[in-house]
């Protein structure tokens, strides 16, 4: 029931996406922490692993009925369990996205892109950052743009955006204290944001396989 014939997604698809994100941040935790120790406080990997583990645990225990409710629940969990700036930032991203999706049973990719757009805008407002500041927005903004086209385009745009943070000078958060010394390092937040969209693409691919297998 992930993707039906008309290309819409149910709550179960969003739950599988977040489970895939939890796996990805756990797998990449060491890499994220390594990037974060260069220009941050070396807790990004551990913080996200803890946060998304709590997300999947809660979703398994109390599975919400709609895609919007899945994301709202995940957002709340991240805000309350992460302990670093990524908690309120990713929490706000998912919660606002969930709120924008509303209480429909199924959503299209286009609707998800639209809702994620509002989530990204909320993140920008919360952190007071914009594209080019060497933050997660450098991956999120192009990813949402790409998602209007396809899951694969979103993934590619996010990964490209994360890589493009390397030559940038950080203007927000702890890394901004480093000034020029932040140049030459890939931003950990943009890197984890790219993991979210890689996981989304993988979940969609797996889902297409399931649907084909079933028909």
């Amino acid at each position: 029931m992930g993707i039906d014939m008309t290309g819409t997604f149910g709550a179960d698809f969003l739950v599988r996406w977040l489970a895939a994100v939890a796996e990805a941040v756990d797998r990449e935790a060491e890499h994220l922490t390594e990037l974060d120790s260069a220009i941050g406080d070396a807790d990004h990997g551990a913080n996200l692993t803890r946060g998304f583990a709590a997300v999947t645990e809660t979703l398994a225990k109390e599975p919400p009925a709609t895609p919007g409710a899945v994301l709202a629940s995940a957002g709340r969990q991240l805000i309350s369990t992460v302990g670093g700036a990524s908690g309120p930032l990713y929490g706000t991203l998912l919660r606002r996205t969930g709120k924008t999706l509303g209480d429909g049973d199924r959503v299209t990719r286009e609707q998800l892109a639209e809702a994620l757009g509002s989530g990204v805008a909320a993140v920008a407002q919360l952190g007071g950052a914009q594209v080019g500041d060497k933050t997660m927005l450098d991956a999120l903004v192009p990813a949402v743009q790409g998602l209007r086209e396809s899951f694969a385009a979103a993934r590619a745009a996010a990964e490209e955006g994360a890589l493009a943070t390397v030559p940038l000078r950080a203007r927000k958060g702890r890394a901004s204290y480093l000034g020029e010394r932040s140049v030459g390092h890939q931003d950990p937040g943009a890197t984890s944001s790219a993991l979210l969209f890689a996981a989304l693409d993988e979940t969609a691919l797996a889902e297409a396989g399931r649907t084909e297998g079933a028909s």
Binding site: A85, G87, P88, L89, T92, L126
Partner: peptide, 8 residues
């Protein structure tokens, strides 16, 4: 994160 958490 103290600022961001309270705002959120």
């Amino acid at each position: 994160s103290a600022v961001l958490t309270v705002k959120a």
